[in-house]
Write a protein that binds this DNA or RNA. Sequence first.
DNA 1: CCATAATATGACCAGGCGGTCACATTATGA
DNA 2: TCATAATGTGACCGCCTGGTCATATTATGG
Lengths: 223, 223
Amino acid sequence: MDTQLVQPKQTFMNLAPEKREGIVRAAAAEFAAQGYQRASLNNIVKQLGISKGSLYQYFDNKEALFLHVFDHFTLQVKRYVKASATGNGREDFFDVARQVLLAGIAFIDSHPEYFQVYLKVLFERDVPRREELVSRVRLFSLEYFGPLADRAREQGVLRSDIPSQKVVFILDAMLDRFLQGYAQPHLDGGLALAGMSADRLHDEIDSMVAVLRTGLQPSDMGE
Amino acid sequence: MDTQLVQPKQTFMNLAPEKREGIVRAAAAEFAAQGYQRASLNNIVKQLGISKGSLYQYFDNKEALFLHVFDHFTLQVKRYVKASATGNGREDFFDVARQVLLAGIAFIDSHPEYFQVYLKVLFERDVPRREELVSRVRLFSLEYFGPLADRAREQGVLRSDIPSQKVVFILDAMLDRFLQGYAQPHLDGGLALAGMSADRLHDEIDSMVAVLRTGLQPSDMGE
DNA sequence: CCATAATATGACCAGGCGGTCACATTATGA
DNA sequence: TCATAATGTGACCGCCTGGTCATATTATGG
């Protein structure tokens, strides 16, 4: 989740920032809608009103363009999650989970196409460097929650009969599924997350986190 | 989840059952590997050693072939889940969840390519009649667990402060994610479900269900 | 045995793809 | 101003796709 996956050509970097943004945005929209293999460079250039030759002056090939889009995605995710952390390192474990969930919602709201790209990468074969892309995101989650869970367990706020690895799995599964349900209505299990008001959404999140807390907290702790 | 999505041509029904099976299997493998749009009929006929013209004597077009494959998928899923139900309707809610999870594992073990097709349908746009296909499977889950949760709630084995809809969402999310992690190792959150022995896998399932139970059960019930 | 129906075949079609390149246009700076 | 470098352009290429169809092969039954 650190270094860039690919370097655009110098020509691209010389472009006006708005134009760069427009290109990344249009490419992201196409990859989000079609997935990697079906995405059409012809569509992208048509949408942008530039020629195909120009696109190839900016990026070596389809793969480089795609990886650049993914780079933007990971950068934005990092930004959102970091912004959600209140930072003093002493927060309640489940409060952090709640914060991350809210950050995820905010991210999807402002960059729905990036989240779609991510979902496509998860379930499509033959995406270039797919394993690497997926691990960048998954590892981020594991490395983020893992130490938090370890510490929480040591401090006795997590049941000792469940390994922290499993705690992280459950947390990760729930968060990921909630976000997927938010982004793809047919995965929301009838909760109708998609069109929900912010207040109702926060209620849903709170009660979801409450269930996790009850299930994962030692039984001698009050709710 | 009841009627067939599509009727193959009579010519296909006249074929020897082994040959029919071979065709469905090869098609499922290709759709699983490539998704609907990228799947190549040329590949399928090459794999089968038959001519493309023949395939078009069996099915009207690519869509009809795909829908027939999906029909087989839903049929098999139904079969597995039904076989897992012990049937007397008086089982513990969470035991049923455990049974369904085990049925899912068994299904993936014997038909990994069908599960991949399902995952592809979930995350691909432009799959023919996609909404309908997805709802067939999702509705099956909701309609299966919904009444069970309602009854369990009435009987006081589920917390009354959580609507059964949310219980079903959580259950569904956990089961689905567990099976996805089993089928796609990068979703297993580091649990390494894929290569796991049956015994260890059952332990994982038991402790997963135990967490759900603790989280969703009324607090005045013992563990 | 042979006429007829059923089935199998693969060359072929139009269309879309990623990628190339000779050329047109614009920017640069002496 | 003008030579040169940088950038923009879209017709074109080879390849693959889903789908067609005239023809070859096989099965059927009188």
